[in-house]
Write a protein that binds this DNA or RNA. Sequence first.
RNA 1: GCUCGAAUGGUGGAAUCGGUAGACACGAAGGACUUAAAAUCCUUUGGCUAUUGCAGCUGUGCGGGUUCAAGUCCCGCUUCGAGUACCA
Length: 907
Amino acid sequence: MFPYPSGAGLHVGHPLGYIASDIYARYKRLRGFNVLHPMGYDAYGLPAEQYAIQTGQHPAITTVNNINRYREQLDKIGFSFDWDREVRTCDPKYYHWTQWAFQRMFNSFYCNTCQRAKPIGQLISHFEKQGTEGLDVACSEELSFTAEAWKAMSEREKQETLMNYRIAYLGETMVNWCPKLGTVLANDEVIEGVSARGGYPVVQKKMRQWCLRVSAYAQRLLDGLDTVDWTDSLKETQRNWIGRSEGTEVRFKVKDSDLEFTIFTTRADTMFGVTFMVLAPESELVAQVTTDAQRAEVEAYLDRTKKRTERERIADRKVTGVFTGSYAINPFTGDAVPIWVSDYVLAGYGTGAIMAVPAHDSRDYAFAKHFNLPIVPLVEGCDVSEESFDAKEGIVCNSPKAGVTPYCDLNLNGLTIKEAIAATKKYVKEHHLGRVKVNFRLRDAIFSRQRYWGEPFPVYYKDGMPYMIDESKLPLELPEVAKFLPTESGEPPLGHATKWAWDVEKGEVVDNALIDNRTVFPLELNTMPGFAGSSAYYLRYMDPHNDKALVSKEADEYWQNVDLYVGGTEHATGHLIYSRFWNKFLFDLGVSVKEEPFQKLINQGMIQGRSNFVYRIKDTNTFVSLNLKDQYEVTPLHVDVNIVSNDVLDVEAFRNWRPEYKDAEFILEDGKYICGWAVEKMSKSMFNVVNPDVIVENYGADTLRLYEMFLGPIEQSKPWDTNGIDGVHRFLKKLWALFYGKEGWQVTDAEPAPAELKSLHKLIKKVTQDIENFSYNTSISAFMICVNELTSMKCYKKAILEPLTVVLAPFAPHVAEEFWHTLGHDTTVCDAPWPAYNEEYLKENTATYAISFNGKVRYNLELPADMPKEDVEKTALAHENSAKWLEGKSVKKVIVVPKKIVNIVIG
RNA sequence: GCUCGAAUGGUGGAAUCGGUAGACACGAAGGACUUAAAAUCCUUUGGCUAUUGCAGCUGUGCGGGUUCAAGUCCCGCUUCGAGUACCA
């Protein structure tokens, strides 16, 4: 995953994933593969713009500076990136194709029957021939009109109608509005009611916004997860986010009225236990069903809920609601049940109306208890006096109730819940009471941002409706503005641009003054969100300089999709959903050859900071060492980890660190000041940031690479602790000592001994297997063992060191390169072939068997390695040591385990 | 609440199919070399009891179970982490 180049530069945690993929890339190259290992920058984003607002510095300048700093830092670590393929999302040559894809989405609709996107022209001809008859397509709302009605529509009406079907569409939707940031945010950019960036409050607001019909792809996004090699937990996160739910829609008539409305339920089996209905406050039905007697009360309630922000609703989950005065007729019982309004029903999910079955739904139960509504249990033997019975298991009863004349001929009594759901679905279908329906939690993505630093939309407005500028005129470049803030009239920052109008005839951007709404029209003022540019960048790497297409057919067919993608789990419900959606759309267009963009995904863990503390005695400038601090009243204070070594404070450095500590006094233990420590986020304010540049300067790039990998499994989050780095650094020095003795270069051409070959081949085998499993930390252990063995055997023979150098190359490329030249090669180590290991060398002559009795190991026995199982058994039983364990007992059976264990079971 | 994952020495972590738990590394203790320091090397290092009996017992969050054999499998808990949350 390419990085967002932030102003803080890289800390030691950022390169982790890049080191892991670099090792894999180098390994695959050594095995003879053509590897595409690229790098680029996700260069549009809020921080550069916020910085611009504060300082006036143009975000483009900030961004370039940050990129240069990133590049400098990355280069120090020695990555084998193919920099010729670098992409930057803010480069017009790049966002040309972001805009292009958006236009294609605008000009497409989603056909549910064939489960793919199609050109909007096909939809128009369908309308011309038969209106909406026989149409099964993704849409914002179900429309129904005839061919004649379509033809009678004005141009504007037609455009409005098409909006309902386009994959990129302008929609009037409830959005997450962040007043502080002055922009809307996507669902994944809001966490617990506040913005992910900055933590500012977010409110719900209705706005006309560009949206992407991601929901149309919900089923494919779900199914595709079965075809990719990702961790189960990440797939599970995406499944939850997509939230497929199979259920039934049922129509309820309103008593004494022509009105009817539809509810969605996954528990069709509970139709006989409905005791009231609930509408979402935002539902249009509320006004229609409210009786005059209740009107004042209902309106007061709506008013109150509107004022509550998302955050307040989360924080305070009191049961609230109001009766509308109307009743609905249950189509299964004929009963009239009251219709209520409550904010526990969401307008955005299902139909915005529910049937309440308090006996079997905890939320309905709480509501019923609060307003004293009846509760009818429907499962044999369940107790609903204290809480609802939500489990989907048991035998149905009371459906219908005994002794009541049946209203319909459906009887669910005696069925299991599963059977009852199926039976009800069947009944609903046959009697046209509703339909079987699959709902998804996944919503369409809101695609407009009221910001400056993002891709401009290639869109102009005519008669209030959006039109795409000609595809051949792309890219539409981001204009200059005087200010990066919203305008006085509340328009986005692009409202400040003076040259931001589109001349259709000339096909170019012209001055706003020329707008005449005949040939010159105003351009869109919103920009695209961060995920626009980061959704298809991997395709661009395959063919980065192509100005005719996002990617050529040849390049795409050659490289296909990403074999190995490395990045954090924090993108599970953002980038990794959008990217999959975007790629599936391009797949439908025939642009991408693979339906899933990322075949294998590895989630690298976060590197946390390891903070150090000093303890100041209250009201003094005296600091007390960790293990003596309990004798005083102390305040723990963060101290810069760079002046602490193995938790021992450099007292002098501390006095010089900040002026207020110049005269600090210390209470030491064993002559040292020991600091406390804690694992926290790596951040400036905790003084625990470790810069990779400093590590490279002190130990070299290879030590940094090795240590980052040695720290633990890639997937795991772990604190950075510079202390352990000496271990891997020592390993490199020992290896160096094999090549260069005290008298210098000492590699010989002598024939290697069997023990030396064994050591080498053990290493090659282990490293080969480990790299394939991304278990780099254990590989490095294997290197250390091998080098220790070779050192103790004083083996510095070329036949051993040469293959060793090659397998080391992915991990420590600089050192390996140096050795490779020393060994007399004028090629680079990257061109070497990966050495094969020979099992012959690994074979043992003798094997040590652990002889155990009833699972307890008692003694060891040396036997020839190729001794047959039966002979091992006999020898073990016959051995003199066995006699004392067998005394007075009989042998029940003997088990010889491949791992050289003989277990003798005795009675 | 629901879903998923994890728990192993002072620390990071090994243990691939159920087969001698603690590889490798850090830290710590002791020693060699050195005027001294750095660097390097050697020894010890889960706990307990021994240590001129060189071994024994115990031990992978807790309680059970399966098995000749469990860190690993099964059942029931505890704690921590991640995701998600009036989704009907």
